[in-house]
Nucleic acid binder design. Structure first.
Lengths: 338, 338
DNA sequence: TTTCGATTTGTAATCGATTACATTTTTTTC
DNA sequence: GAAAAAAATGTAATCGATTACAAATCGAAA
């Protein structure tokens, strides 16, 4: 192959600059270990040859990649994508790159990716989903790669995590609805077996219990975080002899479903019934009416978890291994005083 | 270091199985080049040692990574995240992994990532943003890594691309509004200098021109794809002596802004004015009223571009280097006959 | 049984950087 | 100006796989 077409290597640069490969490597990676004059010569040679470092070779030698893998159930999910934003920014600040694995909620793909991560493909692992427990086939080897879990803690494991204080948040929202004078407060839940959901429902009951109210089973409707189940819940409430005063949905999509369901039936929100959501997704404020909801600091969750992970990767003790971030009530137009 | 703690290498497996490293490599990568009995012995040894292949070493040797880099202006943008879904799925089907670089709309970060891609960090490059023109510093070296551009073609370059047929789509939507009996049709544009926007506006004018109508400059409002500019446009229209019959916004967020702006002023949509958007983002159907819009097959855009890229990577001639996907009108509740 | 071709396996070079250690050069100190 | 210390550079081993080529084994045909 023609010399001019072949991809230049470090020794091509070295020859051109009249130094050794070691010096080139140092001039590029640790410039102040090299005399300014030599450095300049190397830089010139790099430009002239069009040299680009070979990442694979460096990774092999240093046993580091400066990349982090985020395992996500669904990149297209607006909730996760905002967390990714926080992750991406923080990684960039520290000189790391982001690799994303979208598992499409397929446990097999999850496992595959987590396993590949052990192969030195990345320096660290961020799990955006509690379900993933990457025990390698043999089951005896410990997780080799530093790992942090986000959004959902992983029960029964000691993997450090960052999450919203779901229980406290749900309790606060329910209390706020009580303060507004509502008493018959409905709840639309997320999928069962979901840790997150479990916490939120507990918060809902906490608030009621604090007022000496027992949760009315007829007012608690099952959902799965989709708009459709919100609409279904609305129909179910409409079939009741007495409508609830307010409904707290465990996420925003279901809250929007409730609003659509009720307005389709001729009830106006918040005049006839108050609706609150959870998450404060991007369109919550744009909705019609604008949604009252719990704001989760999604990009901060990502940022905190990433900082923690980088600490682990670089051998520092992270400040804390379990972080619960507070959520904030955002009052908008879908709730009103009774 | 203790033998049991050290990460096992391919020669540990070879020794244990009583074969050479070459055989282990073949048993793992090309199993049918190896006698079933030997293969079984190797598999057993792999399990016993807990061997995991070192990705960096393989990448270095084979000069392949089986990974593709997607450069995205903003992962948190709901539009891109759905395209990523299509990309991710298609890659997975072909045994590739996805690396995502979120540039946060920062041209410097864009350049940095594109350059790193040339370092053998990935096998191919997907650009989700026309702005990126990765000319390396020297400027003389051609793009080494196979590249495909999505959503926006890159003017003045021969990089293959996949995009929605924006001009035809905008024309079709405008025609539909005309069919509904509207004559004073407003248009809220995207940012200037945006190729995509340029095409859509051209389509709007095409449709009017076909009916012998000149576009009324007072009805064309500038926007930047955000909800806020949609609301601002609504105020501007309200200040007019005569309201438009319908407004076509160049994306859904602005259409929602228009709806909020008009309903806040006491006008109801679609009774008083029809509103149409573009993109059919996830919440378009959930909006109140549900939004009439152009559906872009976002995940298909991702899938097609990815197939094209894999063809390029694997040395096949892609079926076509320029793909324009049709968009479909989705009639919902924000438009009505006049 | 012998021979030839096909299949399976082994030996060792190779990918392209980094870095421990050795050596040379430069600077400091007296 | 010489000796000692510090800084800069060079030599060559190394990271852990893949694979060209050579050697061994196997099966079928004569």
């Amino acid at each position: 192959m023609d010399e001019r077409l072949r991809k230049p290597r470090i020794d091509d640069v070295a020859r051109r600059a009249g130094v050794s490969t070691a010096t080139v490597s140092r001039a590029l990676a640790t410039p102040d270990q090299v005399k300014p004059k030599t450095r300049a010569a190397v830089e010139k040679a790099v430009l002239e040859t069009g040299y680009v470092l070979n990442v694979a070779a460096r990774n092999l030698r240093t046993n580091r990649t400066h990349a982090v893998l985020a395992v996500v159930p669904d990149v297209a999910n607006i909730f996760f994508s905002q967390v990714l934003r926080g992750i991406s920014d923080t990684l960039h600040q520290h000189g790391y790159r982001l690799v994303i694995a979208d598992t499409g909620n397929d446990p097999e793909r999850e496992r595959d990716h987590a396993e590949f991560a052990q192969a030195g493909w990345v320096d660290g692992l961020l799990l955006l989903n509690g379900r993933l427990l990457p025990t390698p086939a043999g089951g005896r080897r410990r997780l080799a790669v530093p790992t942090v879990s986000l959004c959902e803690r992983i029960p029964g494991s000691d993997i450090p995590y960052v999450e919203t204080a779901n229980r406290e948040a749900a309790r606060a929202m329910t209390e706020r609805l009580l303060q507004l004078g509502h008493r018959r407060i409905g709840y639309v839940s997320g999928p069962p077996n979901n840790i997150l959901e479990h916490d939120r429902f507990a918060g809902y009951r906490d608030a009621l219990a604090a007022r000496g109210l027992a949760p009315d089973p007829a007012l608690v409707r099952p959902g799965d975080y989709t708009l459709a189940t919100g609409e279904a819940a609305a129909s179910a409430y409409l079939a009741l002899a007495e409508l609830p005063d307010a409904v707290f949905a465990s996420n925003d999509a279901m809250a929007m479903g409730l609003i659509r369901g009720f307005t389709a039936a001729g009830l106006s929100v918040p005049e006839a019934i108050s609706i609150a959501g959870f998450d404060d997704i991007e369109f919550a404020g744009a909705y019609n009416p604008a949604l009252t909801t719990m704001h989760q600091a999604r990009s901060e969750i990502g940022a905190r978890a990433t900082t923690m992970l980088i600490d682990l990767i670089e051998g520092r003790q992270p400040a804390s291994r379990e972080v619960h971030l507070p959520a904030e009530i955002v009052m908008r137009d879908s709730t009103r005083e009774r």
